[in-house]
């Protein structure tokens, strides 16, 4: 990927993220967060993670942000104007963020991570077709031999081959979440049931 494109996508992700943190109007914040997630999804695509990029857009930028906007408009939350700023919290928040960033840059530059680029760790699709082991299903090997990355098929194989139990636990978690939302939003009635 051209370096310029990476910097552009990183700028979109971080710039809109900054607008989420500093915005006064909740609706502006929610829309900025959606834009930030789209930038992040593009970064995922640049890392050859097409399936994750698409579900990032579908789940986060689609479902989650619509839920946020729905709640903001349902509760009719106005922009906070004229409220005094919580200065100690802002100072400590900015200080912690700057310290964390400096620390991460120091740690990353001190390791071999800065030497691994997509140019010197290329995907070897044709070679991988012969070394798949149990994942060597015809649909996957044919895609690999044709020179495309069957991203969703490989994730699906990993999920159902190695993490079948975990997948069921996640399904149960979603069910419990749904029941929890219903219980939480049920209006308590006094008097007659």
């Amino acid at each position: 990927m051209p370096p310029l494109l990476f910097y552009l996508l990183a700028l979109i992700t971080l710039g809109f993220g900054f607008m989420v943190v500093t915005g006064r109007n909740p609706v502006t914040c929610a829309l900025s967060l959606a834009a930030s997630f789209v930038g992040l999804a593009a970064l995922f695509l640049s890392l050859d993670a097409y399936f994750i990029g698409i579900i990032q857009i579908l789940v986060y930028a689609g479902a989650v942000m619509v839920l946020f906007l729905f709640i903001i408009m349902l509760l009719d939350i106005k922009a906070e104007e004229g409220k005094k700023l919580n200065l100690p919290a802002i100072v400590s928040g900015v200080l912690l963020a700057v310290l964390l960033t400096i620390q991460i840059i120091a740690v990353v530059s001190g390791t071999g991570f800065a030497k691994k680029s997509t140019a010197n760790t290329p995907l070897e699709l044709a070679e991988a077709a012969g070394k798949l082991g149990r994942a060597a299903l015809p649909t996957i090997t044919n895609d690999l031999k044709a020179g495309t990355l069957p991203d969703a098929k490989l994730i699906g194989f990993t999920l159902f081959d190695q993490y079948g139990f975990h997948l069921q636990v996640i399904g149960l978690l979603l069910l419990v979440g749904t029941i929890g939302v219903v219980v939480l939003s049920k209006r308590e009635r006094s008097g007659t049931p």
């Binding site: 943190v21 960033t101 530059s109 030497k115 680029s117």
Partner: peptide
């Protein structure tokens, strides 16, 4: 563009969220 670049962007996004 190296892995380090992605990790720094990830760390900065996390720091923004923390702030």
């Amino acid at each position: 563009i190296t892995l380090g670049h992605y990790l720094v962007v990830s760390g900065m996004l996390f720091a923004l969220g923390l702030a």
